[in-house]
Design a protein around this nucleic acid. Sequence first.
DNA 1: CTGTTAGCGCATTCAT
DNA 2: ATGAATGCGCTAACAG
Lengths: 354, 354
Amino acid sequence: MKATIKDVAKEAGVSTGTVDRVINNKGSVAARTEKKVLEAIEKLNYTKSPIAKALVSRRKHIKIGITFPNLEYYFWNEVFKGIEEVKEKLEAFGVEIIVEPTKSYNIEEHIIAVDKLVKKEVKGIAMMSYDDKRCRKLIDKLVEKNIEVSTFISDSPNSKRLTFNGEDSIKAGNIAGKLMGLYLKGKGNIIIVGIHKILSCMQDRIQGFKSIVNEEFENIKIVDIIENKELANGKEEEYRKIIEKVIKKAIEDKNGIDGIYVTNSFTGSVGNLLEKHDYEKEIVLIGHENTDEIRDLIRKNIVKATVYQNQKEEIIRSIEILYERIAEGKKEYPNVQYIDLGILIKEKLTGTYK
Amino acid sequence: MKATIKDVAKEAGVSTGTVDRVINNKGSVAARTEKKVLEAIEKLNYTKSPIAKALVSRRKHIKIGITFPNLEYYFWNEVFKGIEEVKEKLEAFGVEIIVEPTKSYNIEEHIIAVDKLVKKEVKGIAMMSYDDKRCRKLIDKLVEKNIEVSTFISDSPNSKRLTFNGEDSIKAGNIAGKLMGLYLKGKGNIIIVGIHKILSCMQDRIQGFKSIVNEEFENIKIVDIIENKELANGKEEEYRKIIEKVIKKAIEDKNGIDGIYVTNSFTGSVGNLLEKHDYEKEIVLIGHENTDEIRDLIRKNIVKATVYQNQKEEIIRSIEILYERIAEGKKEYPNVQYIDLGILIKEKLTGTYK
DNA sequence: CTGTTAGCGCATTCAT
DNA sequence: ATGAATGCGCTAACAG
């Protein structure tokens, strides 16, 4: 049976209070006593029970805030699932989770949302951030006020946030590029659709995609890169219509497109477009993420493959890190924590072929 | 703040003991009282704290056993990592984990190992099982003796085990077949290497592989299927040598092999062979699993792709299910719990290309 | 500097 | 049939 704090106290000939002081570096322990306790811990191979600790920690009442742009419905839906999970888990630890989403990829709105969370006296904030000076300053100010910050999905690299939980976007682009090459059998003309170029992760995906294609597939040509200039504001459906219109034009302008690479979950939008118009030539559509909409399109063989991050795990880890830090004062975190990337193809989804 | 058993008791005007009796169906509660309690639970939206429950459950001392054939070193190494994780986690709940591996894929030895665990008075056993009559009987006997059983990696389908944690092997074969087709650009001659045909999951992988190849790639021909007749006993290194010899012969016999599909983690062995001999024609090697050895070979571009199950998660879930069942009497489990399959290619592993 | 004690939420035992 | 009391391992507040 695992040793408890009582066993350690007995072994060292002190009280549990003293052992607690040693374990948690609370000071006020004589050097000699501390040594005895440490020896006892070593001897009994003691580690503290996270269960019991959790029970106690209910007495504190910690608030943690979350903010992110709630556009790209299917994508963020997974994040909401993660929030529900982590909420339930941390509730047992006396933690309250406050969600304050924004309606756009707009930094002003983002700053306002963060402000609201601060007013509610959160001790930590998990946020989707931007590689932008204002965001860096925002985060650094929060940290000065003793509010811990972790980022997910999109980072603010040189800020004082604890850590970033997300994907290696260049690698994600690399994988997508390889898949494009394989499905095209190494040859064809393709276009890249890069929505939200404002996010540096989207630029990274494009960069990763291009380098693999250029390096490994000499007969594949990237004939155009389409970006959206205007930022979306609020209504996802309208935004999708704009995207569809632009892409439709691109396909018809460059005749003979063999493949389309979409840098984010709007892969779904482009897939719907292809399905509606049914161009005579089959177009290889490769994109990103793993949403209900995309899974449907993959099953129908309209989207060929996507590379996905596990955004649900990312938000969960972001919150857990904040809790660890706030409640337990954990110190060391890697600068970034990349989550494992997945590859989604039809055979992963369809009923098995016998 | 989340409601506790005390809040419920107060709301219903009874003691916590009575609430406890209602929650855990212990009987000896008047119908009228029970109703009051249930209403209070409803009103306060009460659910019990798993944390507190865990703390209490330390007072019981549950033993859980694990057995599996410890051959294919790299593969089982991941399982050992899973065991360490679950051990640490469940220790806090007062659970003792006892591991009793076998040295071969031999059913007699498997039965002996199970017997040893029974003698140590385990309340549950997680095992890699076989689709075999003797195993089915073995499991059913254990269940009669009130020892719970869950299977992982390989199942005993019609037995009385709680549930199976593993992969959908036909689907795994489907995915491998698709990858073979993509990497071969839809054409070539291939051989299948099926080690351990004794395991039905290996047969399923072959079946899944064949159906996709036949269905989707008319210019790919499966020219041979190599199986091992003899069972391994103990020494992995010797066993690997036998495999390598057989395959070397096959490659050289059928001249002009373009691809090899290996049904399990001996993909690593075959990869080492290809590296050593460096046949003039590049051979597309597709296989299974995600081990240190295989990742190395994928980085070197010798293995092109593998389909992997997460055997670490599988063992963890097998054990957790047993614990839930034994400690909390949870009743309902799906007959099988398929874990998500992963696809491993070079771009997932290498440093990112900029 | 050190020991004692109450209490986190729940399950169990002993009274009543 | 019900209530009260105890303890699981740990932390925090208080006493000395």
